[in-house]
Design a protein around this nucleic acid. Sequence first.
DNA 1: AAAGCAGTACCACAAATGTGGTATTTATTA
DNA 2: TAATAAATACCACATTTGTGGTACTGCTTT
Lengths: 216, 216
Amino acid sequence: MVQVILVDDHKVFLQGVEALLSRIIDFNVIGAFTNGLEMMRFLAEGNIPDVLLLDIEMQPIGGVELAENVLRQYPEVNVIMLSTYFNEDFVQELMNSGIKGYLLKSTGFPEIKAAITKVAHGGFAFSPEVMEVILKGFSNKTETKVQEKNEFGQLTAREVELIRLIGEELTMKEIAAQLFLSEHTVKTHRKNIMAKMDVKNTAGLIKKAFILGFIE
Amino acid sequence: MVQVILVDDHKVFLQGVEALLSRIIDFNVIGAFTNGLEMMRFLAEGNIPDVLLLDIEMQPIGGVELAENVLRQYPEVNVIMLSTYFNEDFVQELMNSGIKGYLLKSTGFPEIKAAITKVAHGGFAFSPEVMEVILKGFSNKTETKVQEKNEFGQLTAREVELIRLIGEELTMKEIAAQLFLSEHTVKTHRKNIMAKMDVKNTAGLIKKAFILGFIE
DNA sequence: AAAGCAGTACCACAAATGTGGTATTTATTA
DNA sequence: TAATAAATACCACATTTGTGGTACTGCTTT
């Protein structure tokens, strides 16, 4: 019997998947949450699942952040990330943090079912699109040891804050005023953000921020 | 017996909702598609539903475009839009095009069920957040007859094309080169886009384009 | 035939973003 | 404690974006 917990802020999605999973005799959905904090509380009460299905695009706490927290405290949990989009930079980072799967929401239910079974038994499960990138990443890493910079270093809290404000259509000047910072500082932050995200301009920044769930 | 068709490119979502709806004796899901064109083909074959549930954020054809097409050809179909986000400009426009409901995906299944029943019997169904804006819009309209400009005039095909390219991180110069246009023209387009979308800068443009499903 | 829209193109100036640096302070962690 | 990361701040210059206009053409629609 595989104990499963679901987290997704799309309530209909959550209920739909729950309904589908509940029909399967091997699975037991012990929790379904639209909110990461509630899920954390549930875990703290001793309800530890075999498999945790986490949506990436959530507010205010994104799935990635949640996954990292959960795995720090309960490394035995098998985490599968669910996402609408597919972001390359992410995969690398998530792999290191110990997740067992990354599925796109365009995936059908049978695949999700198979994925849960797989990871519950120590396996991995990635959508084909994701798998491709992982393999590509591998060969990149082994062949070219030089390029070590573009690792998408984790964004800091401050940087994420900036991203949100940029998303609110504020200019650097306005952000500086709002945060009581020098305009220079704010510009430096944005520069660093763009480097970390590997984007060329504001358009790219906002687009990626959206995909990563920093703005909504 | 209410005949229902679902369209959503999140396959799991689609299958989940389908599973939930199928359990209800009053509903008959006659079609579920991840693709708007397939759905149109299905309608053309004479499969006309009472209620059509349409996701807004789809590629390459967005739900809004689909809704307009469907309603032009089959005005008797009751269309409910589903969306992750909630966009004010949209609601006004959609209301005019004849849709019967607009629900957020954060809505629970019971509400969706109720909404389907309502619209199938000639009613309307909007999420509370949406309803609020509709009412606000009403009072705005009746009180201030002056301001008639900010109606979010429909974006043209060319404009949408530009939006996509801006989303690809291209500058105006690069876009001009790619489309064999003068840089002036491209700038004019962007200016018009920003006015129509009612945004202040690139950040706002991309954000709204994302919400409206123009870029992915 | 006149009006309106979509697409094209131009101008000039103001404001903001983007590039490529350096540097200090304060925590945190190896 | 030495090294690192995060947050702060500065400079100069190049490029792009944003504002506020005008105007011509071709195609629909009234």
